[in-house]
Structures are given as C-alpha cells and as structure tokens.
Design a protein around this nucleic acid. Structure first.
Length: 588
RNA sequence: GUGCCCUUAGCUCAGUUGGAUAGAGCAACAGACUUCUAAUCUGUAGGUCGGUGGUUCGAAUCCACCAGGGCACGCCA
C-alpha cells in the first residue's frame, strides 16, 4: 500500500542501502525501521538503518549514515536528511509530500489505513465463548470487546480473519443447567418445589437458581405440556427429558447471549458447538491420532506441591504428554467415569480449527484461565506439528466501580451486573471504547461515573468531541456554500496548510496505517484507542491555536483547512470503526 | 511449593516489539473565551522505570536472581 508513508520511506532507505551495500542479507534488511522520532525536533522520521547495517557490513555507523544521507537527500519525498546521535538518520519530509497524504485519505475514506502486512494469512480469533448457562455479565464483556476489536484491526491490516465463538455445550455445566431448567419447568407445571427441596434430588446439587431460567420453564411447558414430568409433577427418569431440556435451555441461553452480543455490536462468523464436535467423533479421532503417535499413556501424576487436596490419592489416568511440548506436567484426558475432560475436547476443537486451514489461532481468555495456556499451547503444537502458532490473549478482571466503590457481584445473590445492564447504563459505545483504554493484561476498574462524564478525563468523550467539532466545521462550511464532500476536497490546493499545528495533525493522520499494522501484529487493539486520543488531542490543539477554519476572505485557505478537517474526521471514523464505536455528529 | 501475569510522576495509565533528553490525563500552580461548542487549549512543576547483576553501539523493553501484588495449580469449564 503506497498509502503507508512509513513503508514508502522504508523502501527508499533500503534501496539507498543496497545502492552502496549490495550484499546485505535479507534478515538484516528486515530489521531496518522507519519510525517517528519521539522528539519532533529530530524531524518527521528517523531510521535505524545505519546502526543495524554497520556491524554485518564491517563499517562504522557514522560512515554508513553519511552514505545513506547523501542518497536519501536525492529522494523526491525528502526535504533533508542528516545523520545524528550514534548513527540515526533523521529525515524531514517535503511539506507537499505530507500534504498529499490528505488527498490519499480523502480518496480512500474509512478504508484509509488498510494494509497488506497480514498477507492474507488466515487467522481464527475465538472470543467470548461464555458457557451457555446464563446471561452475559461484565466479566465476559472485556474479552468480547478485545476479541472483536483485535479481529477488526487484523482484518484491516490484511489478515483473512474469522471471528468465532466456541459453545461449551457438552460438559457438566450444561448438565447442571438442564437440571435447573427442569426445576423451573416443574414449578411452571404447579409443583410446589423449593430450591432446597429440589437440590437434594439433583446429582451434584442444584447450581443455577437465578430466575432467568423461569422463561425456559415456561417454554418447555408451552412446547411439551406435562409430558416431560413424572406423576404429580415429580422428577421423571432422565432418559425421558434430559436431552430435550438441555437442548431447549442451551438454545435459549445462546439466544440471550447472541442478543447481548448484538447489543454490544459484536457479530461472530462461526458458532462452533463442542457437543456437535464430540458427537461427530472428532474428539475420538484426534485422541486416536495422538495415541498412535505415542503421545498418550496411562500414568499417575504427582500430587500438586504445597497445597495437596484433602482427598488426594494416587490414581492412574489417561494422560497427554504435554511436557514434550513445553508444559510442566502431563495432562489428564479422561474423567474417572470415562468421559473426556474439557481439555480433551478442547484439543479436538483446536485440531478442528487447524484442519479448517487456519494459519494462526488466537484465543481470548479470562485471566483466571491463565494456568491453562501452556497445555493448550502444547496441544496445538502436537496437533499441527508445530506449524500453527496459538496466541492466547489474557484479559484481566474488570471491577465495576460506582461512587468509588466496587459493585458487589454475586451469582448466588443475583446481584451480578449483566452486560445488558451495563449497556443500558452507559451505552454500548462507551463500554467498547472504555474496555480498550487499557492493555488487556492489566487489571482494570470500570468506573460507571467516569465513562459518562463529559471531560477530557473520559477518552470516549474526548475523541467523540473532536469528531463532532470536525462535523460542525464541515456543516458550517457547507452552509456558506463550500463543496465539502471528500471528492471535491480531494481536488483542493493544499499549499495553504503551513501552520505547525496543521502539519503536526497531518503527520499524525499519515501515521494511522502504521498504528493499524502495529496493533494487528502485536495483538494489542488498545493501541487504537490511544492513537485516537492523541489524534483528538492534536485536533483540539489546532482548534485553539488561533485562526478560524472558515475565513470569508480566504476561500482557498478555507478549502484547504476543510480538507484537513474532513481527513481528520475520516481517520477518527476509521479508528472508531475498528473499535466498533459509532461516531457522533454533534454533542449536546 | 511451582508456573504465568503485573510493578513507570502523589493518583490512573501509555511507551509504536531494543533507539536519541522516559510521555499523557487527574490532582497543584500560572494563563487563554468579540470563536466554527472554553465539554477545549497553552505553560510550570512532578522520575533511581520495584531492586541487583548480565547481554550490546544502545535496555522501561531481552536474560538471571531477589522483593512486593494478582491469577492458577489431578477427573470445573
């Protein structure tokens, strides 16, 4: 993409290097970077090329830098290049070259920043994957937002991305869900059955007591009447009702989860069912394959050090040789009743993703699953022969704060904050943006009061305000007869843009493709939020720096400034689109 | 006991995968509204990047050890 001025300049630098050092190996050239210097006084761009190349070329960095400078000064985009410090080459760009980037933005629209760094590599991003046993709560929300934004930014950077949700509908949790739904069903039929009464009849006890399952009981009654119950609305033999109740309950929970995801603006491409995978024999096949490769054996694990469970006793288990692939201990694949552990099915699921042709797997998990990462990495190595990398992005706990106090959450007491409650309170856009204002692996307090505050402290507002200001100027321009559509503005002469605050804004806008690429390659979508904050800051600074955008006696200058404003609004929208946030036209 | 994550200004956090004199916001102080929204902006002050070593042209970033905080640790998902 020629839109990426960093890539363009990097190509210039490498061509210049090869002009006088023709034998540089590719892996050295790979390390050549063109970046923005921290200190703007150093110029628009800087390259480490001389430092990187000096050693393999057996030359002193200043010597390489001098040769490089001479050639870069001849490049059409370069105003001046000079060697500095230990061997950096600082580059000042032709102002016209920078200004022309605005034209590229106006022509590309929100597609500006689209890149090719992903090279069409097939990536599967799996996120949310909440158990279908109840409504989504805020704990799931961060992963949903991070996963969705990561998938978006990777797609923008040129990866072929599939967004996926793994439905854990095969384990003990959904069995417990089925019992809880059956309890609601019996109540619906008129059984006088308290939670404690029913608890005694459930293997493992009654787990899900929240009244969100009442509608499931109603639906079961509407569909089946009393045919799933025993005499006098008692518990019938499980063979008569269990599969049906579980299926209905899971379907309804998934419907509720999909509704919540839709409200958050998350749309996943694939919903993969653990049960479907198991019933199709995928788990058996994968385990048989591992068995044939000698990666599964019957053995006894050491007890955990330090904190040995009370009822610990040595037991022979079916184990996967995770230690061969970097894990600390081998991991069990079957429970004592012979059924698969969650891990066994998860191996099959990841093998399925590999079989579907993905080159890279990304899972977004809650931090409480951190201990599970090494074994999953080991499993993916085993099933893909080390060919497919798995990156697990861990999202730390989010505490919801109100009035400076954490909001108490308890599933048992029914006081946990559901995702839909949170969206009702602050809006989906604020939720999404705010969730991306921290690195995902840092703990995070979500302050209900702060995200709706209209001050600079609140990045959501600050960025939206910049966009609203842009739109306001463009409306005023249109009202005074200017053609403010991007196509018309793209034909504007931009030489009037000379003010330092204007040029600073242009440089920021032109760096957007680089930020897209960086966020995508590092799997860190929060960088987009910080870029937008900095961009908004540049625009607010320009706003207050003096002259008005619209000046009656300076039509050409006004058009040039409108082009800058439109380009700014475009890049803000482009960034917000990645984050899944709707730009606002005005703030009242 | 082991593994993973975290530790940066008084507070909340960035730091573009190893670059130059470590940056924002809040709080503090001093300023800017005849304006397309002052819901904003400009400036001052604030640091032993948890500690000690190592790797190299160069380390907040990589490695080793130590200290503090969080998460997890055989048939829960």
């Amino acid at each position: 993409m020629t839109d990426n001025i960093f890539a363009l300049l990097r190509a210039r630098v490498i061509a210049a290097l090869q002009d006088f050092l023709p034998d540089l190996p590719p892996e050295i050239l790979e390390r050549v970077e063109v970046t923005t210097p921290k200190d703007a006084a150093h110029g628009d761009m800087a390259t480490n090329a001389a430092l990187v190349v000096a050693k393999p070329a057996r030359l002193a960095p200043p010597k390489v830098a001098a040769d490089l400078v001479a050639r870069l000064n001849a490049a059409p985009e370069v105003l001046s290049a000079e060697a500095a410090g230990p061997g950096f080459v600082n580059i000042r760009l032709q102002p016209d070259f920078l200004r022309v980037q605005l034209i590229a933005i106006l022509k590309a629209g929100e597609a500006y920043g689209d890149g090719t760094a992903g090279k069409g590599v097939k990536v599967n991003v799996e996120y949310v994957s909440a158990n279908p046993t109840g409504p989504m709560h805020v704990g799931h929300c961060r992963g949903a937002v991070v996963g969705d934004a990561l998938a978006n930014v990777m797609a923008k950077a040129g990866f072929a991305v599939t967004k996926e949700y793994y439905i854990n509908d095969a384990g003990a949790q959904v069995a417990a869900l089925a019992w809880a739904a059956y309890w609601r069903y019996l109540q619906e039929l008129g059984a006088n059955l308290s939670a404690d009464d029913f608890d005694a009849q459930v293997p493992g006890g009654l787990q899900y007591r929240g009244d969100y399952l009442v509608p499931v009981g109603e639906a079961l009654k509407a569909k089946h009447g009393a045919t799933l119950a025993g005499a006098n609305n008692t518990v019938a033999d499980t063979s008569l009702w269990f599969d049906e109740v579980r299926a209905v309950a899971v379907d309804m929970m998934m419907a509720s989860i999909r509704t919540d995801l839709a409200a958050l603006g998350v749309k996943q491409d694939v919903f993969a069912s653990e049960r479907a995978l198991v019933e199709a024999g995928a788990a058996d096949r994968v385990l048989a394959d591992l068995q044939s490769r000698g990666l599964i054996y019957e053995g006894v694990l050491e007890p955990p050090k330090g904190k040995t469970p009370e009822d610990w006793e040595p037991r022979e288990q079916t184990l996967f040789r995770a230690t061969q692939f970097g894990d600390d201990v081998d991991r069990p694949l079957r429970k004592s009743d012979g059924s698969n552990t969650y891990f066994a099915n998860d191996i099959a699921y990841h093998a399925d993703k590999v079989a579907r042709g993905f080159d890279v797997l990304i899972d977004i998990w809650g931090a409480d699953h951190g201990g599970y990462v090494p074994r999953m990495n080991a499993a993916v190595k085993a099933v893909s022969d080390g060919r497919v990398p798995l990156d697990v992005v861990l999202c730390q706990i989010v505490r919801v704060m109100k009035g400076g106090e954490p909001v108490r959450m308890s599933k048992r007491a029914g006081t946990f904050v559901t995702l839909s409650d949170l969206i009702d309170e602050v809006g989906a856009d604020a939720v999404r943006f705010t969730m991306l204002t921290r690195k995902s692996d840092a703990q995070f307090d979500f302050d209900l009061d702060a995200v709706v505050a209209q001050t600079r402290e609140n990045p959501v507002f600050y960025v939206q305000y910049a966009h609203a200001r842009c739109r306001s100027v463009l409306r005023s321009g249109a009202a005074s007869g200017m053609a403010v559509d991007p196509a018309a503005l793209a034909g504007t002469a931009l030489g009037h843009l000379q003010h330092e605050a204007e040029m600073a804004l242009i440089r920021r806008l032109a760096s957007w493709p680089r930020w897209v690429e960086g966020a995508a390659l590092s799997h860190e979508p929060h960088r987009i939020a910080f870029f937008l904050y900095d961009l908004a800051s540049d625009f607010h600074a320009l706003w207050n720096s003096g002259g008005r955008f619209l000046q009656d006696d300076d039509r050409e200058g006004t058009l040039a400034r409108l082009a800058l404003v439109e380009a700014t609004a475009t890049v803000i929208r482009s960034g917000l689109a990645v984050m899944g946030v709707t730009p606002v036209e005005e703030l009242r």
